[in-house]
Design a binder for these strands. Structure first.
Lengths: 225, 225
DNA sequence: GCCGCGATGTATCGGCCCGATACATCGCAA
DNA sequence: TTGCGATGTATCGGGCCGATACATCGCGGC
């Protein structure tokens, strides 16, 4: 899950682990608070070893000329880095491919809480059919939870602790709201609209006016989950 | 976190791991879907080794539960539990003490998503001062997230992907609703009201909900899961 | 000058937790 | 008899978290 998030973020532009984490935190609105560094750095390492991303020393210290660091010095373990510590990660060609694969997935794991959030955040680069499948899977998932909560409350009535009951009531309401949200999104998808685009502030300077979301890439091959 | 949940549930009555998990699932309304067995059983083992709980072969559970409609015949013939059968866990005296300690905690970890849910579910056995501290800590936590989301949306405006924006908007709304919920609860706590006396749950159907005969339930006592 | 101090930045460790998987038993129906 | 779904216990690999440890940078105070 973090893998998809990192690949997607680096797809826009290379950046540090530190910045990556901040972007992650605000990007994942609901569904997840933040990833910890204890997760982030090991994952970066894994992705590097898999060849999806590559790192380079930050050349920001010397703007244009400067001396290029002699060689991609192998990471000195033990006590931190040599001297200049910042590392910029960037996506490789294989990484782009991998990102595409992950984007096309629409299996059961894609509609779990946090995973769904990450996938949704990248819907702008996901093809329409996959978007719909994920949205509907998620809806079913939340509906199931909602029914479970409803039953529990019906059956519980005055048998269980009032606080527990209140917790379930709150959970039921949240589930209900999410289902309605999803239904709206699904309806929009079916009519070909991008998302609801709440407040429009026409500040869209020159450049392309096309919507990033409605590109409709013709699918050639697709792995159905 | 699971530790608190298990101790609290076993405080009511002894039960199997299997039943424990089902109770857990419905108890934790929002904030958490379910615990997996891959978590539950190792935790039970840990608690047993720590001395907080003890196991015993399944014979007669104490009837303090909601009672079972006599359809359950004792399937214990000759006690085959010696080798490996059903195991009923029950709280020890030390376990009760431990439960009390955990209930009294009100630190930073108690207002994280899932942990907060577990603590809240046991508010009926938590003293008032601790309840208030946890509620207020949680509120601050969610407020911070809300502000972060608000800033991101203000600043982002037309810069970011429409789907990502929609995700953040949804997250903002959810955070806002939770803050209001918490504020209501805090107000109730301050006036000494026990729990929020909610006799009606949110109706998800259209149309308003006049509640006929509050408290009366059409029997629903056929399933004991 | 230089000193602390908070933000930036990278990284590891112990431990919680999850999904997948493997068993075994029981009641029931084809 | 066989199959099947619910009940029931348990482990394993790996993802993820909180705590912790460093190191550098910019900046204001003294």
């Amino acid at each position: 899950m973090l893998e998809l998030a990192i690949l997607g973020l680096l797809h826009e532009s290379p950046m540090h682990g530190y910045e990556l984490r901040k972007r992650l935190t605000t990007m994942l609105g609901a569904f997840r608070a933040a990833f910890s560094y204890g997760t982030l750095y090991p994952t970066l390492r894994r992705l590097r070893e898999a060849g999806w991303i590559e790192d380079a020393p930050d050349s920001a210290a010397s703007p244009t000329t400067g001396e290029v660091p002699a060689a991609r010095a192998p990471r000195v373990k033990g006590t931190g880095l040599g001297k200049r510590g910042k590392v910029v990660y960037r996506l490789t060609a294989e990484g782009k491919e991998r990102f595409g694969e992950l984007l096309a997935q629409a299996g059961p794991e894609t509609w779990e809480d946090a995973t769904f959030g990450v996938h949704f955040a990248f819907f702008g680069r996901t093809d329409a059919a996959t978007r719909l499948r994920i949205l509907e899977g998620r809806r079913r998932r939340v509906e199931e939870r909602r029914e479970g909560l409803r039953d529990a409350l019906d059956r519980a009535a005055e048998r269980i602790d009032a606080y527990t009951q209140e917790l379930q009531r709150h959970g039921l309401e949240a589930a209900d709201r999410e289902v309605r949200w999803l239904e709206e999104l699904i309806a929009h998808e079916r009519t070909g609209q991008p998302p609801t685009v709440t407040t429009q502030r026409p500040e869209t300077r020159a450049g392309d006016s096309a919507h990033p979301a409605t590109g409709a890439d013709r699918d050639g091959d697709r792995r159905t989950d």
